[in-house]
Write a protein that binds this DNA or RNA. Sequence first.
DNA 1: ATTGACAGTTCCAAAATAGAACTTATGGTC
DNA 2: GACCATAAGTTCTATTTTGGAACTGTCAAT
Lengths: 170, 170
Amino acid sequence: MKWDALEEEPCSLARTVAVIGDRWSLLILRECFLRIRRFDDFQASLGITRHLLADRLKKLVRFGVLRKIPYQEAPKRYEYILTQKGLDLYPIIMSIVHWGNIHMVDARGRPLLHEHKSCGKMFDPVMVCSECGEPLSAKHVHVHPGPGVRRSSPLHASARERTKKNAEQA
Amino acid sequence: MKWDALEEEPCSLARTVAVIGDRWSLLILRECFLRIRRFDDFQASLGITRHLLADRLKKLVRFGVLRKIPYQEAPKRYEYILTQKGLDLYPIIMSIVHWGNIHMVDARGRPLLHEHKSCGKMFDPVMVCSECGEPLSAKHVHVHPGPGVRRSSPLHASARERTKKNAEQA
DNA sequence: ATTGACAGTTCCAAAATAGAACTTATGGTC
DNA sequence: GACCATAAGTTCTATTTTGGAACTGTCAAT
């Protein structure tokens, strides 16, 4: 499929996936949250090809997740820093890290531990309901169509064609 | 890079990305949480090619995120359902959806609304500290090396080579 | 004048993906 | 019994994306 089409989908997951839904983008964002800011530092710590790094940084800037800030004139050089929109990705990054901590660590244990400066303790992230504060699980959530919904949210022409085909049979 | 190498990285984000860090896997998981279970239903609702769908389902099964359950004999047919490990991905999916709701919706508004059955209200997911219950932000978290850490976590040989090169300069 | 840092760009080969047709097994219909 | 439909894949080729390495341009330091 043309992946740019994802941005247009009436689905918040699909639209977010259009921005961060590839391996390198997520790894680049990890580095951003670990205070990496410069082209060669990203390249060295990730081993990504320079070509792809340039491409992904450009995309993250285009989507407003990163901003290019000049840190020296002559020659003009920039660093990439997270915008507020980018900082808001933190729960996504943390929930990914947490799932890995629970389900993917080897016998050696967790590579990183997280301390909450506010309370001083090592913590895990927990996702709760904004209204009642209880931890969330898929089982206790019901989905309703919202104002931005479109038909039954088929992602593609092929899905629509299938629907059409079924309709013709009737 | 060889993407299988990601599973071996001493980084919980990288290891999770090895499982779900591509566009199709995340979209397939969205469908799983919306109760889609069968091959042709995934294919119709996503428009993914059958080839890739077979490949991604196989991978998700291999990683223990989905399980194949027979739902009829002769011919033997299976559905794909989320394991507990798969259900645990819910916070990742929800945080992705939530970021899209905040930053990627158009004028029409959100495609979907979420109701918390436990309290009966429409909600947003909030990520909080397991210890003090306060909402988390990157600014208030400090990262420590854990028992599973390896050197400075270079992702690749090229990163190691760069380090070696720097060392030789000294 | 030569070397090195930095932020890319260019080029080609290798790998992954899209799109469509084909396969296998079975059950129902004319 | 021939024909169609359903379901879950597999196979094929053309196109796109990615990996890997070298190259470019600008400036500073030696």
